[in-house]
Write a protein that binds this DNA or RNA. Structure first.
Lengths: 213, 213
DNA sequence: TTGAAATATGATAAATCCTCACATTTGCAA
DNA sequence: TTGCAAATGTGAGGATTTATCATATTTCAA
């Protein structure tokens, strides 16, 4: 009984594959599993996604699913990880050559728009990052991702404001980034018109903070 | 099969008690159920909370639990609703007599501190609002709460900036409020020192937006 | 007192996650 | 080619948990 509580409290944060697929055959099957999961999440949400359905749609047995994913959350996590990897590359590219305030405004505004549109268009992304707070592993992934993205911003800020306190810049960048995620999540949960206004207001607010001081 | 999907998609947003407790006896029992649930959430989180445990700890049968709560989420929702009612009163009081920019700075800063400390100290509140995004009913409750709180801010803002566009003020207040929730949630999920910095940065950022323009 | 409404109970139906013992396939060294 | 160990595949069933429902008991007003 105590063991049970302890085990739940522990809750392995990173659900690594029970076994890495080494053969071509299994790599393809794992892809099918992820594709099936993605489709089901798009249709019904990750909460309603059933392991049996994933297996069936992927054309594998339920046992095979658990061969490569230790539990249900691990599947969602695997999808989430792919998205973060993609988006980080995109963000790094967008901020790479920013040299002045004008450039930052431009790049930042575009990034926010991209993020907003992505959330509007992709039910899977929306669903995955909705459950974020409830799942420890996802929360950690998101925090790490957010820190990494903030770091790109810090690089730019240090260039634009060489005299500023580095810790203050870190804090600002991290906060601005997280608020961007919050703003976009909020924006997609209200009607489109209000959502647009909220995103625009966030941009103003964030840029004022990034450029001022 | 289609019915099943449709039913899940519907997902009653507000889980009202299956039956309102009218007699003294049952009102007391419902209180005990909520108290038990609260204790269990504090100990293990609402996800690990088991209906059987709630019933046992409240000294009632599982059937009685379902007499007054249609499902598990309804219990969490009931607790959440109490907290929002309390906090709204608190916020209204704090903003009631704000007459100038200085007063707003003061009151706003205090409110944020209170909110931050509340989240640091109360595991139940933390847990409930963590799962917010995953549960439709909770998300709606939070949105409604946030709008109501933003409204108090709007009243103050209209007083301070009579010429401003009302819709812009609404948008600003709503956004600022939601970002405050996001900032506090972020702050409690990192170490205390960084959390304090983040909250302070949020205050600066929010006040700049509320007062400027 | 009495009957209807409210409340209480807990065995059990139903849904779902995940395991495990065993079967099959693959790749490679002899 | 052959043999074998490692990788992979399978699905019935164990385990857990939510929620229901037929039935029993209590309350209260007429």
């Amino acid at each position: 009984m105590d063991d049970k509580v302890a085990a739940k409290a522990e809750q392995a944060v990173v659900a690594s594959p029970r076994r890495a697929p080494t053969q071509q055959r299994s790599r393809e099957r794992v892809e099918r599993m992820l594709a099936a999961a993605s489709a089901l999440i798009a249709e019904q949400g990750s909460d309603a996604m059933r392991m049996g359905e994933v297996a069936e749609r992927a054309g594998v047995s339920i046992g095979s699913l658990y061969q490569f994913f230790p539990d249900k959350r691990a599947i969602v996590w695997a999808l989430a990880e792919r998205y973060t990897a993609e988006s980080q590359a995109c963000i790094a590219a967008a901020l790479k050559d920013v040299g002045d305030a004008e450039g930052l405004s431009q790049a930042f505004s575009e990034l926010v728009d991209i993020y907003y549109r992505l959330f509007l268009a992709e039910p899977v992304i929306r669903d995955i990052w909705s459950g974020t707070q409830a799942d420890k592993a996802l929360r950690e992934l998101e925090l790490a991702d957010s820190r990494a993205n903030a770091e790109f911003l810090v690089v730019v800020l240090k260039r634009l404001r060489p005299g500023a306190d580095p810790i203050a810049l870190e804090t600002t960048a991290f906060l601005v980034w997280q608020m961007g995620e919050a703003a976009v999540r909020l924006a997609i949960s209200v009607d489109r018109e209000e959502g647009d206004r909220l995103v625009a207001a966030y941009k103003r607010m964030a840029l004022r903070e990034l450029l001022a001081e």
